[in-house]
Design a protein around this nucleic acid. Structure first.
Length: 879
RNA sequence: GGGCGGUUAGCUCAGUUGGUUAGAGCGCCACGUUGACAUCGUGGAGGUCACAAGUUCGAGUCUUGUACCGCCCA
């Protein structure tokens, strides 16, 4: 084994070997019991791996590996998403570079190009996921646009259509002028930006007076169809019912009263533009106002814009204001922080626009989805997201599912030129279902990408066919994803699952947080703080990245990721590597491993202690993992491995392996191998590569760690070993501390007197370990129950159980300093004792606290009293 | 406006149902190449757990309020 672990050398070959052994397949388990199933959230097919994918993959692979090791049939279904807008944009960009466009190519040729693109770049991201160690069943990989899934989409659409849950209508939608398509409410983000609040006069038709009105978008006055005031607003009540005049255009519109108007905002009077504002659209409907669309699809003004026709919306805004100024209609324009709606994709300003689109009626679907969670059929982890889930579904609006794109699932509806009727069927129709005419034309729009991903948990298993996979692996066990797509995706899968399969799509939703940079800032290209997981894996290894992602935060909360943290976890991997190196290089040729039955009588305290700790840590991590606290479990394993196994047990083992006693040697080896092997198993779901490599070097049964059994824990707790080891550790640390304080050369062997009372036998038994660890000269180490005469010119120390230590460092002792040190120690002790005494003197504490807690305090106080007595004696001796 | 989360060591974060003297990593100080590991070891410094009140024998942990930060929804 090399001196340091080199991930590059092992990761790829190991992954290939695992896959070739068919370990990733659920069939490998040969277990007909309840399977454990995850559908991988499909990444964009032409995307590149980023940290969001990395954490998703790490967490899911963690769960899959854990359940696989428990012997369950573990299935992780991978796949990719066609990502309508994102992919289309990429191909369009490529076309632009070639000096052509999709319009020039035409729809069919364009789609050919997209498929070519997909063929070229489509495998990239899944290759990158393999680098993360993803143990998914690649033979079951799916793509949202493949034949089977397209059929699922078609089936789903037709069913909803037939049920009347899909309708087409003219509504105010979010229009993305650059992308030339509608986007759903969820795809719009609101950012606070500097704008202006424009105050102007809405003249009454009779010219007698005006109503002051404020707006952030003056150009929309061209589409105004009313001015609204609050019904109880005395300032304006006299205007209600009167007509006023649209500036420039001269149209007459009414003044209406609506409680929606915020009297405190602006002037308290608002213009109503149903064609270009969602709130106004609602008011317009309630008051039966006409809707005027003033904008073309490219965000220039149309014929309703009068003189401004053809101008871009922002140019029109300026020009109109100047013109109104000239007419004396303006009051002022104040700087104002406005909420600007921007497209999540591309970032351009989105325009509310009236347009004909396809919608899903979500109300009935949302109701059953709420019920599924309320009934506990689906559990959301962390639980607090349940409220967010509920809140969203309770206020859900109809879902605009049509997109004016070419790449995607085309809407399976044919329009008849003769009767204007619509035909929606599973197989492509040749004639109109209404009138029989053959003059039918397919709707040009495609479906929102999330429509197909909503079907993902069951479409990937073969739905709508009744396949063996669907029967065996559906519903899936856990849906693991980021909380940022709870609405986009999770809710829609629940709605779709319940609607189409009559069952929940998954039993548990586990949501992880977002990854930010080390100071909590969002990673972005413009900030230059993006961490590329591929670069990290190159530099530190996959395991370091995975361990960092898995242990870096608590469930559902964001993680600040820093390279320092990754580096320290790389060091952890190296620690494992070297600990393994130590163990195997000390095994000797005749080593035989043994099972978990140990005869405690033949073991020493450190053996019993580490076995007991292993057992505790096994129980604890298993409990935490079952409770979805993967991070805490991982952190505990880290601490156990480093601070207990490596720092103490291995250090003890070094000494005992040099023993003349063959039995001592062989026991130590067996404990070393046993504990290391079990710990590697516990760590494997976190850091699969290093653990497998290390495991392969160790004596083992079975061919791979990844299919080894998850360790079981036992109820037995070796309390005595834990206590005695604690004493030894305390003893060694205390001596080391004094050595450092007195600047004893690290290499120097010193003499010591240990007055150990009833711990004497135990300490004598471990004399060699203690002397070596504390670097005490064997010939001048005295361990006795008591000492008639305290050594002169010695540093006196007292630790728990009243054990006294004397270090005769004659030439180094400064009596004054020693007195000072002991006095300080005593002060600290007495402070502690006062606190403990206080508790015990409190009748309420003694009566109400659990007996064990009270006893604990009593024991503590007794121990402190003994320490105090001995320390006082030591002080006295010095004076 | 409604909701959620956060505030713990210089930095980044843990702290499981309330119960020893509140922990880790990084950073810092001192020392150290004794054959697992300098991607390391040994020892150390560093915190009135945002603030206030309350519940309790006991609060970092539960309740209420306040301040600040972040996110989601409208």
């Amino acid at each position: 084994m090399a001196k340091a672990y080199d991930p590059k050398q092992y990761e790829q070959p190991l992954y290939d070997w695992w896959e070739s052994q068919r370990y990733f397949k659920p069939e490998y388990a040969d277990n007909l019991g309840e399977p454990f199933v995850i559908s991988m959230p499909p990444p964009n097919v032409t995307g590149a791996l980023h940290l969001g994918h990395a954490i998703t993959t790490s967490v899911e692979d963690f769960m899959i590996r854990y359940h696989r090791m428990k012997g369950e049939a573990a299935l992780w279904v991978p796949g990719t998403d066609h990502a309508g807008i994102a992919t289309q944009l990429q191909v369009e960009l490529a076309l632009r570079r070639e000096g052509t466009s999709r319009q020039e190519l035409g729809r069919d040729k364009f789609l050919e190009r997209v498929w070519e693109w997909k063929a070229k770049y489509g495998g990239m991201i899944t290759k990158q996921m393999r680098r993360l160690g993803a143990s998914c069943d690649w033979e079951r990989e799916r793509f949202t646009m493949d034949e089977g899934l397209s059929r699922a989409v078609r089936e789903a659409f037709v069913r909803l259509y037939e049920k009347g849950l899909i309708y087409r209508g003219e509504y105010l939608i979010n229009w993305s002028p650059g992308l030339q398509t509608a986007v759903s409410d969820l795809e719009v983000e609101y950012t606070e930006e500097d704008g202006k609040l424009y105050f102007f006069k809405y003249m009454l038709a009779d010219g007698t007076d005006f109503i002051p009105v404020a707006t952030t978008r003056p150009e929309t006055v061209l589409g105004d169809t009313a001015v609204a005031v609050h019904p109880e607003d005395e300032r304006y009540s006299r205007f209600i019912g009167q007509m006023c005049v649209v500036p420039i255009l001269g149209r007459q519109i009414p003044v209406i009263a609506d409680p929606y108007v915020d009297r405190a905002f602006g002037t308290g009077a608002v213009k109503i533009t149903p064609g270009h504002d969602p709130h106004d659209f609602e008011i317009g409907r309630q008051h039966h106002l006409p809707t005027i669309n003033i904008m073309n699809k490219d965000a220039t003004l149309n014929e309703n814009g009068g003189a401004y026709q053809g101008l871009d919306r922002f140019v029109a805004r300026q020009k109109l204001w100047v013109d109104m100024e000239a007419m004396g209609l303006t009051i002022e324009a104040k700087p104002y922080k406005m909420q600007v709606p921007r497209s999540q994709r591309g970032g351009e300003i989105v325009e509310p626009l009236v347009s004909t689109q396809w919608f899903v009626k979500t109300q009935p679907l949302a109701e059953v989805s709420l019920k599924a969670v309320a009934d506990g059929q689906i559990k959301i982890v962390p639980e607090r997201f349940t409220k967010i889930y509920n809140n969203w579904l309770e206020n859900i609006r109809d879902w605009c599912i049509s997109r004016q794109l070419w790449w995607g699932h085309r809407i399976p509806v044919w329009h008849c030129r003769d009767c204007q009727g619509m035909t929606c069927t599973r197989a492509d129709p040749t004639q109109c279902a209404q009138c029989g005419s053959q003059a039918i034309e397919r709707d040009p729009d495609v479906l929102d990408t999330w429509f197909s991903s909503g079907l993902w948990p069951f479409s990937t298993l073969g739905w709508p066919d009744d396949t063996p996979d669907l029967r065996r692996y559906y519903p899936t066990s856990v849906m693991e994803t980021g909380y940022d797509i709870l609405f986009f995706w999770v809710t829609r899968m629940v709605m779709a699952g319940l609607e189409f399969t009559d069952d929940v799509p998954f039993r548990t939703v586990y949501l992880h947080g977002l990854i930010r940079d080390e100071h909590g800032k969002k990673m972005s290209k413009s900030s230059g703080n993006v961490i590329d997981p591929l670069v990290v894996m190159d530099e530190y290894g996959t395991d370091a990245l995975r361990f960092t992602l898995l242990t870096g935060s608590t469930p559902g909360s964001d993680m600040n990721l820093s390279m320092e943290r990754i580096a320290s976890n790389r060091n952890f991997c190296n620690k494992i590597w070297n600990a393994t190196r130590f163990v195997i290089s000390n095994l000797g040729v005749s080593f035989r491993s043994r099972d978990s039955t140990w005869d405690l009588a033949e073991l020493t305290v450190p053996d019993r202690w580490i076995l007991s700790r292993l057992n505790q840590i096994t129980a604890e991590t298993t409990r935490l993992i079952e409770d979805y606290n993967f991070g805490e479990a991982g952190r505990q394993l880290y601490d156990f491995f480093w601070s207990e196994f490596a720092d103490w047990y291995i250090e003890v083992a070094k000494i005992r392996l040099q023993s003349e006693d063959a039995f001592v040697q062989s026991t130590t080896r067996q404990v070393l191998v046993y504990v290391l092997e079990r710990t590697l198993r516990l760590l494997h779901p976190y850091i699969p590569f290093i653990t497998e490599v290390a495991w392969q070097h160790l004596p083992h049964e079975g061919e791979s760690l990844m299919v080894a059994r998850w360790p079981r824990s036992y109820d037995r707790l070796d309390q005595q070993a834990n206590e005695q080891m604690a004493i030894m550790i305390d003893l060694v640390r205390t001596i080391r501390n004094s050595r450092a304080e007195y600047r004893v050369e690290p290499a120097k062997w010193i003499s010591a007197y240990i007055v150990a009372g009833d711990q004497t036998t135990m300490l004598v038994k471990h004399r060699e370990v203690i002397s070596k660890l504390a670097r005490l000269e064997d010939s001048s180490l005295h361990i006795a129950p008591q000492l008639d005469q305290k050594p002169a010119q010695a540093i006196g120390l007292v630790i728990s159980n009243g054990i006294e230590i004397y270090l005769p460092l004659a030439d180094m002792i400064d009596l004054t300093a020693e007195r000072e040190r002991l006095t300080k120690e005593l002060a600290r002790l007495s402070q502690w004792m006062t606190a403990t005494q206080g508790k015990l003197n409190n009748g309420n504490f003694v009566n109400k606290a659990p007996a064990a807690v009270v006893q604990q305090e009593r024991d503590k106080l007794a121990d402190l009293e003994v320490q105090q007595t001995k320390m006082k004696a030591q002080l006295q001796q010095l004076s």
